[in-house]
């Protein structure tokens, strides 16, 4: 009898890869077929998708339920403004440098807040975000409490004409979402990702099997902080204006993101994608109803949490045993292959 073999791809994942590539090509050609408003909306969708993937990696896998991700969104936004206005950098490298600075900053923050567990950790992250908001409001050269706009000369570095500028910032948003999605995918597929998934399910057993939980969580936190800051930079490159309240908004950059991940399916890679689509579908249909829209969002969140605690993707996965991203290992036995 020959040895069983181990595979990871499934027919569903191969189909998903093909469809994903087609969708990516169509989206990449967006500036040639989409209107201005559509492109703005799609850019926002891409950036939210990226934020949701990052938050899902932290909360869904590493158990780091942060409600303070706005700290790094705002930090990334402010770094874009500071490094372009005072550092003379082009916006794109400024955003990337902002990511590295956020990574460096996240290490001392982690050593502080990792001492807190569960709900205390969540509150701790929020406190950190408030400290960020209050600190940036003190910086008068960046507009203090009322904020500032990105100077026209810097905006033009993204594209001299309005149409090129819009196309370029669309591609930046799309590119960032694809990079974040792929980074999270390859991380989860790696040896470290397997360890992280084990931590998600049982920290006690994971540490007993040789996984350094603190270090793994720190890695996730640092990577998540860097990517969140980069996305924050891109968000405020779209908005062209920043203020402490907008940059460090818990509603915009954390509450909506949590909604997306929870209704989509926390702790799965597919969940944030589904959640992002549902969130924007709701937002676009209910946009005219004002605050009523937030009430509907809350209601949807409650119903999903009660009826499908693993989110919409959890329902689908349990029923059809589907996996679009081939993260699982499947053992194939020789007799399966003969088809007997």
């Amino acid at each position: 009898m020959s040895m069983p073999s181990v595979t990871r791809a499934t027919p569903a994942s191969r189909a998903a890869l093909f469809i994903g590539l087609v969708v990516l090509v169509v989206l990449a050609l967006g500036p040639y077929w989409a209107g201005r408003a559509d492109m703005r909306l799609m850019s926002e969708i891409f950036l939210y998708l990226a934020l949701a993937c990052i938050w899902n990696l932290m909360a869904g896998y590493a158990g780091l339920v942060s409600v303070g991700q706005q700290a790094f969104v705002g930090f990334g936004g402010y770094m874009l403004f500071a490094l372009t206005i005072f550092g003379g950098l082009h916006p794109v490298p400024a955003i990337i440098v902002g990511g590295f600075l956020a990574a460096a900053l996240s290490i001392p923050i982690a050593t502080l807040i990792f001492r807190l567990k569960g709900a205390y950790f969540a509150i701790g992250t929020w406190v950190v975000a408030e400290v960020f908001r209050l600190s940036f409001a003190q910086i008068q050269s960046l507009g203090g409490g009322s904020g500032s706009s990105l100077p026209v000369a810097i905006v033009k570095e993204i594209g001299a004409k309005k149409a090129t500028r819009e196309a370029n910032s669309y591609w930046l948003a799309l590119g960032a979402a694809v990079i974040v999605l792929l980074a999270v995918y390859f991380f989860l597929r790696s040896r470290r990702g397997l360890a992280l998934t084990a931590i998600r399910d049982s920290e006690v057993a994971a540490s007993g099997l040789g996984i350094d939980i603190w270090r793994t969580k720190l890695e996730v936190y640092v990577i998540a902080s860097a990517f969140t800051a980069i996305i924050g930079g891109l968000i405020f490159l779209q908005k062209l204006r920043i203020s402490p309240d907008a940059a460090f908004s818990v509603n915009d950059w954390t509450a909506f993101v949590i909604f997306i991940v929870v209704i989509g399916g926390i702790g799965t890679l597919e969940g944030p994608i589904i959640g992002t689509l549902v969130f924007f579908a709701l937002r676009e249909t209910l946009a005219d109803f004002g605050t009523f829209y937030l009430m509907v969002l809350g209601l949807v969140a409650i119903v999903v949490m009660l009826k499908a605690p693993k989110g919409l993707w959890g329902l689908v996965r349990d029923r059809f045993d589907l996996e679009l991203f081939p993260l699982s290992y499947r053992v194939r036995f020789p007799k399966d292959e003969e088809g007997s």
Binding site: R191, A198, D201, A205, S328, Y329, R330, V331
Partner: peptide, 18 residues
């Protein structure tokens, strides 16, 4: 304390790799 969301193979694999 199984890793409930992972398959039996993956449960043991993580012990082998880590």
């Amino acid at each position: 304390h199984p890793f409930v969301g992972m398959t039996v193979f993956e449960n043991a694999l993580v012990a082998a790799t880590e």
